[in-house]
Design a protein around this nucleic acid. Sequence first.
DNA 1: ATTGACCTTTACGCAACGTAAAGGTTTATG
DNA 2: CATAAACCTTTACGTTGCGTAAAGGTCAAT
Lengths: 253, 253
Amino acid sequence: MEYTVNKLAQLSGVSSRTLRYYDQIGLLKPARINSSGYRIYGQKEVDLLQQILFYRELEVSLEEIIKIINQPTFNQTAALKNHYNNLKKKRARLDKIIATVERTIASKEGGISMEDQQKFEGFKEKMIEENEQKYGKEIREKYGDETVDVSNAKLRGMSQEDYQAMAALGEEILLLLEKAYETGDPASDVAQELAAKHKEWLMYSWPNYSKEAHAGLAEMYVADEPFTAYYDKNVKGGTEFLRDAILIYLGMK
Amino acid sequence: MEYTVNKLAQLSGVSSRTLRYYDQIGLLKPARINSSGYRIYGQKEVDLLQQILFYRELEVSLEEIIKIINQPTFNQTAALKNHYNNLKKKRARLDKIIATVERTIASKEGGISMEDQQKFEGFKEKMIEENEQKYGKEIREKYGDETVDVSNAKLRGMSQEDYQAMAALGEEILLLLEKAYETGDPASDVAQELAAKHKEWLMYSWPNYSKEAHAGLAEMYVADEPFTAYYDKNVKGGTEFLRDAILIYLGMK
DNA sequence: ATTGACCTTTACGCAACGTAAAGGTTTATG
DNA sequence: CATAAACCTTTACGTTGCGTAAAGGTCAAT
């Protein structure tokens, strides 16, 4: 039995454009071209197309499919396993996204100030990105991609509970800042406790802790308006005081 | 605080190209353009970008994000719910795919590989054809076309699981043949068990069972080279022994 | 004054096709 | 037998969300 493009398209349920494209990229060549330049497919091509569509259904890229169908079975299995891992990762990511959306909807409906939720999410992302940008490369070189990815994932997937705890710690820090600021001395006990709490808070959300990073963040607080606004909210000059306390705590001043 | 593209890019962790693109599609316009044509972003834009990145993280398309951020919150919630449903569908689909990949890998590995799978397919076809040729006519006359066609279809569509079970049974038969052959007597208990298993195996793949057909197949085994090769593989003269056992089992000898 | 680090716009490239457009071939119908 | 309808062909632009030049202006520092 022989088929022209549209016949095969009808038979297999894909479009003729798809078949031409598969021809173009060398994934599925017709058995022959007739005198008028028409693509003619035979039984062999039908079977091959079945296989191709099977893999496509599994979300394997066409590039991968080309590799797969040109290889012996054991390599095909290896390729499938690799693909399987990718799918699992994809699902894990999707699960987290779904969880986040659920929480977001709940908080929007429950009225628990979505704004805070979102701010938090944004803050997390921002932190991750900054962390990535500033220290990611070195850390990735030192500890490998997996370590970094895992901790980022952990941070992203932080639960509501964790968030509550972290938020509580954040509040405490603001209160401590007020108290410490009154001493006027960033080296005072209270100020140093403040710095310690800040480190704790940081580690909560920031699995890749380093003195350098902490110091860098402290400097950034002073340089970056939204952060100064936040820490100066209750105490004028609080941001700078916090930075000094942290630098002393880290033995960098 | 004001930012140029690269400043904001660094702050937020996206690329400057991304920001220009967002400007281009009207997702995030800079607060103003300075005299040199530079894009200048302010605090409002930073906050908006946070929101945008939050939704992006949730795999909302940029087009959707444009709609969302231009709407009041209750509509935002509705949009999120809609998106949530899409995500759930996506996950359900992904789950199915993963299950299929798992099964495929298992069958490729656990199975005696693809090659056997193909052989099996060929075997099935051959069996159907032979069945057709030798008994088809009579059976069609006796039971009607539909019966035959349906059982052929059933055989062709035999599942991987069935194949596994059948393959296991096939293995068992080979082992039993060795044991039975040692007795030297096709009427022995072991040989009769062999014959019974063979019938079971046959019925597995062959919905139209009859003593005559079974006997005919047994004779065919002896006459047909590929079959003798298969059953003589471990035991010389095994095929004839099997035939005799079957004929006795059927009360035909 | 020059260098280097910024910024700009324009534009091609990616995956896997959908969708014309412009034109040749085959088949059906009057 | 002519012509229309139904096929087929290649070429090429559009899609999404940017990455990556290329070609050229602007700004800060040496």
